[in-house]
């Protein structure tokens, strides 16, 4: 197949576009189309596609424009909310990271200070846990018999663990509700 553009192509297109084909166009154009294969193809294909467009357009199931307008609004609002929430999430991550670093540094300094006096990790941990109630003056809340035993320290640890667990559950529930 050789590509050869007909010089009358634009004229024929114009006649078709205006709906003048075949009865309202100049006789010379009709005569040209009769003898030109490219223009015959153009007329045939244009007529076929135009009638198909008319038939298909009539079959379209069109929704109300209001629904689409509302959906576009909704999508835009969600995008705006996401845009607002993004810096907040960033701030939360930053705060958590700072907390983690601070806690690690605190623990590291505590270990450095106390490690010289104790021979092993376990004994250091035990003594640190034993000191905890006294640090927070919590021994006054316990019976006298339990004040000097190791049970007090483990009770404090269990309370801290419970508080952490409870706050995690609360945070999860709160974010889930939002």
């Amino acid at each position: 197949m050789r590509f050869r553009a007909c010089p009358h192509d634009a004229e024929v297109k114009d006649v078709l576009h205006r709906g003048h084909w075949p009865h309202s166009c100049a006789p010379e154009i009709r005569a040209h189309v009769e003898g030109c294969k490219a223009c015959r193809d153009l007329v045939l294909v244009t007529q076929a596609f135009r009638s198909e467009r008319a038939a298909a357009s009539a079959m379209a199931r069109i929704e109300s424009p209001g629904v689409l307008w509302w959906r576009a609004q909704l999508r835009r609002r969600n995008a705006a909310l996401e845009k607002i929430a993004r810096p907040m999430l960033g701030a939360q991550v930053f705060a958590a990271a700072v907390m983690l670093i601070a806690a690690t540094l605190f623990l590291a300094t505590q270990v450095k200070q106390s490690f010289g006096q104790n021979s092993s990790w376990f004994s250091w941990l035990l003594s640190w846990v034993g000191e905890l109630p006294r640090t927070f003056h919590m021994e006054v809340l316990l019976p006298v018999s339990m004040q000097n035993s190791g049970i007090a320290a483990w009770l404090v640890l269990a309370a801290i663990g419970g508080a952490v667990l409870l706050s995690g559950v609360l945070v999860y529930r709160f974010s889930d509700e939002r």
Binding site: R53, A60, I62, P65
Partner: peptide, 22 residues
């Protein structure tokens, strides 16, 4: 605006659907 869109939609939705469907 909303009204202008409704008019534009009425005029363009069917040809667009025909294009997509075919």
């Amino acid at each position: 605006q909303n009204d202008a869109f409704a008019g534009f939609y009425e005029r363009s939705a069917r040809p667009l659907w025909a294009y997509l469907a075919r």
